[in-house]
Write a protein that binds this DNA or RNA. Structure first.
Lengths: 72, 72
DNA sequence: TTGATACTTTATCTAAAAGTTAAATTTATG
DNA sequence: CATAAATTTAACTTTTAGATAAAGTATCAA
């Protein structure tokens, strides 16, 4: 799938644990885990905004697009 | 709301009409209009991917986060 | 003024999925 | 080993993306 979640990179860079972030933004650890590992098919902007706020980053830092080989 | 849709900037830069893009990615003009003008509360990654593919851009080019004044 | 093109808006509807809770499991890591 | 962090599955509720339809606004050129 061409959309990759790069949240883990930001967590690593900021030295934060997923658990912390889940607590801060008030999203279940379960869901954050699913999100982080690319197992959800979309986001609500409210959630995205909370992530950006908590991690002081932009949506582009969390979500990347990679052209599928077929589309090159 | 802290998430802003900046798709229009990309359209302008690429000299594309919303209508064209809607046709290319097979999303209704109605929905694309709602999306462009910030009237939806989320996106499916499948849609985001199609937009990125059609416009040859990254999610970060389409969605921006602005810290709310209260959060500064 | 008329007609074509682009875009918006409102409303109704359905299918999809975000996000929850709970509970068990699996990694780390000290 | 022990324990904290992360993952996975499953059952469930609630939200809403995105579709369709239909009427409306704006612009521009003939």
């Amino acid at each position: 799938m061409p959309i990759r979640i790069t949240l883990d990179d930001v967590l690593a860079a900021k030295n934060m644990k997923a658990k912390q972030v889940a607590a801060i933004i008030e999203v279940s650890e379960t869901h954050l885990s699913l999100f982080r590992t690319g197992k959800v098919r979309g986001v609500r902007f409210s959630t995205l905004a909370k992530l950006c706020a908590a991690l002081d980053c932009q949506p582009g830092d969390l979500i990347a697009y990679t052209r599928a080989a077929a589309d090159l």
